[in-house]
Computed example of a mutant assay.
Amino acid sequence: MTHLLTIADVGADGLRQILALSESASLGRPLQGKGVALYFQKPSARTRNSMEMAVVQLGGHPVYIQKDEVGLGTRETAEDVARTLACYHSIIAARVMEHGLLEQMAAATDTPVLNMLSDSDHPLQGLADLLTVKQLAGRLEGVKVAYIGDANNVCRSLAEGCSLLGAELTIASPEGYGLPEELEGVRQVVDPAEAVEGAAFVYTDVWVSMGQDAEAEERRQALSAYQVNEALLAKSSDAHFLHCLPARRGEEVTDGVIDGPKSAVWRQAENRMHSARGAMAWMLGARP
């Protein structure tokens, strides 16, 4: 039994193994004749498509479950939902509002639980990000990555991965928008120009995520100086641009950057599928 709720859960060795499995073309069909529950409390284009295809590539049958079909934490406890789904599936994957729901599910069953996104972490995105950096830079150790904007769940998973594998991450955020914890090898600054100097990769995400509409204007004002545009990217070391998508063009990034020759966002999006396949294979016991 191996749950995957955060990048930190798997450790450095596990992380290296997942990335190696993600690049492997010979994982076999460990899910042949088996189901994978995909519960979505929050919708997503990339997560649903990448996960369904990854399950199929491993020989399994993905079952998409909408939030209205399962009253997670309301009609039924998270523990009872997990126990029920474990009767039918070999992996339970969930995309939830509150990370605590995943922890409750994982504590209630021996069936592996996979975090498809929570309010604090997005490990599947972090795996795809690390895989993309490794492919383009040829390594992770010592590679300089800059993250610009709100240090959200995507940023936390990226930071944990960089810290474990030796990439040098600098996060530039306004006061009150940085990571609350310190991680080895992760630096936090206020000035975005300082963060991108010498960076091989520059990453950003939306300023207003799902569920933050009430504070949208406040967030846009606080982050208005953190747009990744051509002028900011020019201060880097000819950096590749990364974004987890969807992008709000004209806010956190300009068209010229996301559509530019150094943009790697579509490779990154494709890697969501490959890294999901690697993660699930690893959870089921595969090792490179």
Results as ranks from 00 to 15, higher is better:
187 R>I: 10
167 A>R: 07
12 A>F: 05
66 Q>P: 04
7 I>N: 01
238 D>F: 06
14 G>Y: 03
60 G>N: 09
58 L>N: 05
196 V>M: 05
176 G>C: 09
209 S>L: 10
159 A>M: 00
80 D>R: 02
15 L>D: 09
20 A>W: 06
138 G>M: 11
92 I>W: 02
166 G>F: 12
194 E>R: 05
17 Q>G: 05
96 V>K: 13
267 R>W: 04
115 N>H: 05
236 S>G: 06
199 A>M: 14
113 V>L: 00
187 R>G: 13
230 E>N: 03
203 Y>W: 06
33 G>L: 01
258 I>V: 12
216 A>R: 14
112 P>R: 05
151 A>C: 06
127 L>Y: 06
269 A>S: 15
246 P>N: 12
94 A>S: 15
192 P>N: 02
159 A>Y: 01
137 A>F: 02
49 N>R: 08
32 Q>H: 10
12 A>M: 10
184 E>S: 14
104 Q>N: 04
33 G>C: 09
78 A>E: 15
5 L>A: 09
57 Q>S: 12
202 V>R: 05
46 R>K: 10
93 A>D: 12
238 D>I: 08
24 S>K: 01
12 A>L: 09
272 R>Y: 02
190 V>H: 12
42 K>M: 13
254 T>C: 04
245 L>N: 09
153 N>K: 04
179 L>H: 13
175 E>W: 08
116 M>H: 11
107 A>T: 10
154 V>N: 06
277 R>Q: 12
82 A>H: 01
141 E>G: 08
255 D>Q: 14
254 T>A: 10
82 A>K: 03
33 G>P: 11
170 T>G: 11
14 G>W: 02
208 V>N: 13
98 E>Y: 03
190 V>W: 04
90 S>Y: 05
45 A>W: 06
38 L>E: 11
201 F>A: 06
60 G>V: 13
253 V>E: 05
258 I>R: 00
271 N>Y: 09
215 E>P: 06
166 G>P: 12
159 A>D: 00
176 G>K: 00
95 R>Y: 02
54 A>I: 04
254 T>V: 06
191 D>T: 02
130 L>Q: 03
126 G>L: 11
252 E>A: 10
149 G>Y: 13
99 H>V: 03
138 G>N: 10
161 G>P: 07
202 V>S: 08
53 M>R: 14
96 V>L: 15
148 I>T: 05
132 T>G: 12
172 A>E: 15
80 D>Y: 05
63 V>W: 01
58 L>V: 13
169 L>K: 09
258 I>F: 01
154 V>F: 12
49 N>Q: 13
67 K>N: 15
23 E>H: 09
26 S>Y: 08
71 G>W: 05
276 A>P: 00
145 V>K: 08
